[in-house]
Nucleic acid binder design. Structure first.
Lengths: 233, 233
DNA sequence: TGTGACATAAAAGTCATACTTTTAATTCCC
DNA sequence: GGGAATTAAAAGTATGACTTTTATGTCACA
């Protein structure tokens, strides 16, 4: 959940990355390495390495005789987990959650359909187990425990799809679900209808019913979108 | 299309990135910075910056007293455009094209549906124009010209969706379409049915018919999947 | 013989500095 | 006023010295 790293490099990277994604240093801002070195009290070496990483994320661009220019949002590598984490920690967290949820709503149904075709028996079992865990923790303010099962469930679906692009979205989904739980209501128990849907998805996958798994997951997605008012009621 | 960069840094980065994604230096391989500096005939400074970037892509991990370890595929940032380009240039290009096409098949229909809701008049016009361009170049071995319109069409759809995560997949789609054209048949003209579908999508978006835009785009996606034998006929 | 504390060394991490290269901006000449 | 030569500012590169972490080997002790 937290950003790893204990060296100087990680520290400066986190500070600069956060600052940029948070909107301080708006696009067009020009930074100089010497100035940054002074500001963070580190050597130019460290700053240069950090700048190179930020450059690979297309957050900044470094040009001779000019300096390090902050790039506009459209250039950013918004799929970089690091960038996602920074943005979720910043001001436009709600906007970010929305766009990630829309992405989920597109990807997860298809992933579930593929999972029904490709999931191993072990994955089917795991899926059922997590769904049951969700049921068990869906009442009585056990939101943290519920979240753990919810995340695990969606991770298994994505992994079982057999598509590596889908599988890699596990972290994103985890981030979204966590953000939702910790920010939204936190007091109410999860929607019983959603819980049931998860159980049914596990069922459909187990029975290799791809169309049903996809349709059910699409229902879950619609629910998530409604929750964020992305959809009209 | 090509990787930019003219400095030493870019050169070494490209060489190492390609080597790793291509499967030389299999996961677990340990590299040492001094050795790399010697191999590429650059200073340790440059190597360290490159390693830091590769580390941010989760291609490698650098640990004291151990060295720079190549990480397993599951860790890689497979959404990083740079990584995608390297992998498409390497041996498992077909596998890569498949998994990207599956991603497209999930995302683009939803994006088209949203585009029908959010596209500006200018974007609608652009969409129609590109679709007509596809029609005009769909016969007589004008594959390169057709490709340009095809890419532009899908880019407009993704951008019009109003979702930045979708918008950023424009490059990926371009990469896939290019790869398909340049590798697949290259002799046959595009499938007339697909061309018609594109025109109809433009129509649906213009008429704000989200459901139809989504359904039609799903048909296009099914076609793309069939072409790669991802789907049973 | 096994086990835990200790010493060793290997490699990355950091810093300071000197130097090179690119290039925006200024100056100067026509 | 415009174009060519000059200048200087900033990133890029190289090198060497030093620090810190840590895997591994050693040795004493049980």
């Amino acid at each position: 959940m937290t950003t790893p790293g204990q060296g100087l490099h990680s520290h400066v990277l986190a500070a600069l990355g956060l600052a940029i994604t948070a909107g301080e240093c708006p696009p067009g801002t020009v930074l100089r390495t010497d100035e940054l070195a002074q500001r963070f009290d580190v050597s130019r070496t460290v700053v240069r390495e950090v700048v190179r990483v930020l450059e690979s994320m297309h957050l900044v661009e470094s040009r001779r005789r000019v300096g390090v220019t902050v790039l506009p949002t459209e250039s950013w590598n918004v799929y970089d987990p690091q960038v996602i984490r920074w943005r979720l920690a910043g001001a436009d967290r709600p906007r970010q959650l929305r766009s990630l949820t829309v992405l989920r709503s597109a990807v997860e149904p298809v992933a579930a359909g593929l999972a029904a075709l490709h999931a191993t028996p072990a994955q089917c079992r795991e899926l059922t187990e997590q769904a049951l865990g969700m049921v068990a923790t869906s009442r009585g303010r056990q939101l943290e425990a519920y979240l753990v099962h919810d995340i695990a469930f969606h991770r298994v679906v994505l992994n079982s799809s057999g598509n590596e692009m889908f599988a890699r979205l596990g972290d994103v989904v985890a981030e979204v679900l966590t953000g939702r739980t910790h920010h939204h209501v936190m007091f109410e128990d999860p929607d019983p209808a959603a819980v049931t849907l998860h159980v049914q998805v596990a069922e459909a996958v187990r029975e290799r019913d791809a169309a049903r798994a996809e349709a059910l997951t699409r229902e879950i997605a619609v629910g998530a979108l409604k929750e964020l008012d992305v959809l009209a009621p």
